[in-house]
Amino acid sequence: MASQGTKRSYEQMETDGERQNATEIRASVGKMIGGIGRFYIQMCTELKLSDYEGRLIQNSLTIERMVLSAFDERRNKYLEEHPSAGKDPKKTGGPIYRRVNGKWMRELILYDKEEIRRIWRQANNGDDATAGLTHMMIWHSNLNDATYQRTRALVRTGMDPRMCSLMQGSTLPRRSGAAGAAVKGVGTMVMELVRMIKRGINDRNFWRGENGRKTRIAYERMCNILKGKFQTAAQKAMMDQVRESRNPGNAEFEDLTFLARSALILRGSVAHKSCLPACVYGPAVASGYDFEREGYSLVGIDPFRLLQNSQVYSLIRPNENPAHKSQLVWMACHSAAFEDLRVLSFIKGTKVLPRGKLSTRGVQIASNENMETMESSTLELRSRYWAIRTRSGGNTNQQRASAGQISIQPTFSVQRNLPFDRTTIMAAFNGNTEGRTSDMRTEIIRMMESARPEDVSFQGRGVFELSDEKAASPIVPSFDMSNEGSYFFGDNAEEYDN
């Protein structure tokens, strides 16, 4: 783990906690998980779902989305002020799938948001429990990260689609708070800032007046979040320049895209947490497990152990491969979309394939898809080993990566060399080191050039047997250095459309 220093740990961010010791953190995270579980059980009762239907990941996603929508204050306010045809701002819903006479049927349900809020609060001892809501947002974000390569979004903001390893959390809503900021990748933060800068260039009043003052505060806050992700002084200094700019424009845009590229080699610290679907927490609570009393951590053995003992089902389209669908969801559960496939294969105990080789589309089923041909199958979400999630980018030494994705962002704290394609990355730096950030740029390029592919990161860190909950005997895996390590390699994943 990167030293926490003055930073709060993510469990504290996750639970809005002030400084807590490890036991208190485990208890408050457990409380959050228990609340999600209780809410899910109650919703299944309301909807009269069978046990099997309640364990269907598509039903879980609909129920999670309903509660997130019920608590989305800004959108609710907007919907009330701008009524649109056929949208009731006070209601929320989605597809629920039921097994009827041996076939899967889709039923569109509609609930009062007020009623959903009441059920959620009741499951969370009367609190709004925003930490639990954020947790579900991060699960949705991790699922998107594993399912889609955001080529269009990258290109629109002047970045290269091969930089997708920097895009963790790119679909997280803005209201996801400190826990959300911690899991956002460098590219995601750059993209958010670039969008602001572009608006400022096109709209003279963007930075002016009372609204402009708020915009400015948001801009500086985002700059500080991004600065905190960088691990070298030169990158941090460049972020200070971007933040202090009187009138952010093209120079800042250039600096930010430069920094994003540099992060492929001088990786930023991005938190990883295993956020599971509500249909995993519900049955665990129903079986009598007391998360608050037992304590829970999002970055240790607990999620692995929970998945070892969970039964989750998914709808499967006619030509999809259930094992591939399982891999997709497994990666999402562990926030591992940008991790090295060699490491993932070792931990999972079966070969993890790149996205383009998977015969599976996303987990969600569109409303126009034919239910007649839908089957369902068990998702295999178990693992051979477990490993500690990392909050750091690993040290800054790398190795060759593949054509589709030119770097990785480690999820697990496991000893290995970190793949990246130096030639491709360095070719993108057209040696432009003039301007006010020239000395920093020169320094950053120097550090990137001296990074050695064969150097090892996370020295001495290994994986653990599932029986080793105290992480007492690390097993340090050895990897084939020459092997392909990137998930979005030469990829044809669908595009994420909101």
Results as ranks from 00 to 15, higher is better:
G35M: 09
G462F: 02
K214H: 08
S376G: 13
K325T: 08
D51G: 05
G177N: 06
L381C: 14
D128K: 08
Y52S: 10
M137C: 08
G35D: 04
S165I: 01
T188P: 13
S287H: 07
W386H: 03
R216S: 11
E73F: 06
H272R: 05
F479Y: 13
D439W: 09
R436Y: 02
I265F: 01
Q122V: 12
N321I: 15
F206C: 09
T23S: 13
W330F: 15
Y219T: 03
R317C: 03
M191R: 07
F488V: 05
V285T: 10
R195H: 02
A218S: 10
S50F: 01
T215C: 06
V280E: 07
N144R: 00
E14D: 15
T390Q: 09
V299Y: 08
S402C: 15
G132M: 04
G177K: 05
L108Q: 05
T6Y: 02
Y10T: 01
L133C: 01
G228Q: 02
E494D: 14
E73R: 11
S287Q: 13
V270H: 14
Y111E: 08
N250V: 07
E375A: 09
T442W: 05
V190D: 02
S60C: 15
E372W: 08
T6F: 00
Q364T: 14
M189K: 11
Y487H: 14
G356A: 14
F479H: 15
S310M: 14
L353I: 11
S367C: 13
V270R: 02
V155R: 00
N142Y: 07
C44R: 10
A153T: 14
M191I: 14
C223A: 12
P477I: 00
P303D: 06
I25T: 15
R74F: 07
G5Q: 04
A403E: 09
V29I: 14
E53K: 12
N125F: 09
A178L: 14
K7Y: 02
Y281T: 08
E64D: 10
C275R: 04
G169Y: 01
P419M: 09
E443L: 04
Q409S: 12
G485E: 13
S376N: 15
K214D: 01
Y281V: 09
G356C: 14
G158W: 03
A278D: 12
